[in-house]
Design a protein around this nucleic acid. Structure first.
Lengths: 400, 400
DNA sequence: AGATAATTAAATCACTCTGAATTATTATTG
DNA sequence: CAATAATAATTCAGAGTGATTTAATTATCT
């Protein structure tokens, strides 16, 4: 469990500029994680498939995969007959090879999920509130994390790999948009969530921006073709974004890359405004309020929602304009392949938003820009907490 | 010389998704390049310094560095006395350890440079023209590349590592901005420069966008603190950009990342226009033309130029606005640390542009944005051809 | 003289590679 | 239909490579 980083941190060593030399054990560790990454991506692969894909010798792959099988991380499938030669034995990820916790701290709710090595949720806990407070979150975790752990057998518990926390950074900003008591959110400013949660459980704890985490979930658990580079939008109470470059999550220097909220985009009336003011669910909630409908349904679950058509239409149109404009910036600045849109919303609304964004994008001046594909995410509303859980999973078992 | 990629291409094999396994020779190659990268970055380092920095054992570093010294890539310095213990022997890059060619194909001139392992130019050739044609470029290279090779001793010639070409992509676009005969630039569309030049010389040939290459020069040869992530502008006939993420050049899917030319930015009058129309030297040339001054001086050499103050002031103001706006997009989308501005211009004009851009940036709405440092590049006008030469250098001798 | 730090030689260890053998199939042939 | 050939997956044994460990040597300072 102890990583090199941990050791360096413990000893107060200023970590060298991440230019570590490589040695045999590192090589083996890399090759093992490479095998696991390929098996995750492509489902079930035989040893010889892996040998061909990696360029490693058959013998090396054989040794590595037998050891991974012995470790309970790979499961042997039914031999495939019908081809000339000895039948191949497909190996796939063993679901119960490892477990991970994901915690999402949101502006209206906190969610804890326990997933297996395949990324399937095995248990969930959720609690809603008017605004998040450190105490409430810590209490929620201290109650529910042990409870979820209980649902595993003693042996499975040994295989818990860590806890990843997905939360908005600078939660105290934009307090005015949440009806919280004045100053209540300021408590977060001096609250070190990683340390506090580490005290509550014996596993590594990682913290990441919520939208970045959601993007990571799409990268690790997403289905369909996985492009090398993509921009990802997650629309929650506020909109956030994530970025994948070279097949790797790009969190940026302080973990705030693709924080698209403050991005200036043209609003419905043509004037520039911030993306978060037109493409967030809070904007939709304001629209509902105005229309005399209680917006609380939005935070309870991601649809089906009862929303007057004109309110929804107006919101989608505005959000799509903003998303299209942000997409254009990204396409120019970092030659973006694909843009994915997901969020805490029913899939039909998401699909309409995707369609509207595509239409709005084609309405822009696109000369000299290679067109990205704009499509819906494949993970859905739970992307943030799943992305949290994906952090320890990637850290330990995957290469980028 | 033949890489795995070459072999795969020859056989028409769809190259596997770059997920190669790692083996001993790869490990050794990596560690060697790691040592060279550190020595390049930090000047002169003893074996024990390297051991501390990389985490490799002293013995391993000793073996690697002695072999690099035997290969003529590292040079032994004067032992440093005055400290307890055996004096340490600083090792630095041997300038004559390797040589590289850089070729820049521009809209007004073609430049060929030969550099040593330290990045110092040892020979230069240059030719100007009204517009670039494939034939003229090939002829220039076929004449001057052998001529420059001649300047090296027989032994040094063995150590030439390759040729890197820096040129604008889609040269045929925007033909209207260059006074070339109609259709003349279209020849470039079906011209495979890499293949043609490969036929002219027995060394690997790499091609990269000119601004990306200039950015690479800043990354490899730049002085001062080298941030992990930065956005780079190179202002030539047209403006171009480059991007460094995680300490690596990010060329994008098709090598066109940070092609900031088409980026929409507010012009002097507030209306949106393309960055290339306000922040390129061609814009300055237009201003000179209008003022009745012959703009050809711009292409001859990077200053000192004779430009009416009001023409220059206006150009700088407009360009700075555009650069500031592009910087804001980058700061939001990819948490950019630093922005560097360089170009084919005298350093005093560049410095004024940097200053004006800083001022313009602070005039924007910056709430919620972490401020990047905007500063001048350190390589200067020759960044593009040096960046070209940096491609084979990095490829062969550096890790990112 | 003793302590300290840089460097290196020799022995050891961990990992991948090569070449050959083994195994389980399908295809072909009489 | 049975025997044989061809093919492909997998594994075994041994060799090779490169990093690590241990111990020695050297040069310098206190």
């Amino acid at each position: 469990m102890t990583t090199i980083q941990d050791l360096a941190a413990d000893r107060g060593i200023p970590d060298p500029p991440l230019l570590r030399g490589s040695n045999q054990s590192g090589m083996r560790a890399y090759n093992e994680r490479l095998v696991l990454s390929l098996v995750r991506r492509d489902g079930a692969l035989s040893k010889s498939d892996i040998a061909r894909m990696t360029g490693l010798s058959a013998q090396t792959v054989s040794v590595i995969m037998r050891s991974l099988e012995a470790d309970g991380l790979l499961a042997r499938g039914e031999p495939v007959r019908g081809k000339i030669g000895q039948p191949s034995v497909p190996m796939s990820l063993a679901a119960d090879g490892a477990y991970f916790f994901g915690l999402k701290i949101g502006r209206r709710s906190v969610d804890l999920v326990l997933i297996d090595l395949l990324g399937e949720p095995v248990a969930l806990r959720r609690q809603t509130y008017r605004y998040p407070s450190p105490d409430a979150v810590v209490e929620f975790v201290s109650k529910n994390l042990p409870a979820l752990t209980e649902t595993l057998s003693a042996e499975q518990r040994q295989r818990i790999g860590g806890l990843g926390v997905a939360m908005p950074f600078q939660l105290w900003s934009w307090a005015q948009h949440i009806d919280s008591p004045p100053g209540a959110l300021d408590l977060w400013q001096d609250f070190d969530i990683a340390t506090e949660l580490s005290a509550l459980c014996e596993m590594p704890v990682y913290v990441q921006n919520d939208a970045t985490a959601a993007c990571g979930a799409e990268l690790v658990f997403g289905t369909g073709d996985r492009p090398q580079d993509f921009l990802y939008f997650y629309i929650g109470f506020f909109i956030g974004g994530g970025l994948v470059l070279n097949g790797k999550l790009f969190p940026g220097r302080t973990g705030n890359a693709a924080a698209v909220g403050p991005l200036p985009v043209p609003g419905p009336d043509g004037r520039m405004r911030r993306l978060m003011t037109i493409a967030s669910l809070s904007t939709l909630a304001d629209g509902l309020q105005e229309a005399g409908v209680n917006p609380d349904q939005l935070w309870e679950m991601p649809g089906p929602w009862t929303i007057p058509a004109y309110v929804l239409d107006r919101w989608i149109a505005g959000a799509a304009e903003g998303l299209a404009s942000a997409t254009l910036s990204a396409a120019t600045l970092i030659e973006i392949d694909t843009v994915m849109i997901d969020g805490w919303m029913p899939s039909d609304i998401r699909d309409r938003l995707v369609e509207a964004t595509n239409a709005a994008f084609l309405g822009l001046d696109l000369a000299g820009v290679t067109l990205p594909v704009i499509r819906a995410g494949t993970v859905g509303p739970r992307a943030r907490e799943l992305g949290g859980a994906a952090i320890p999973l990637s850290q330990r078992f995957l290469v980028d």
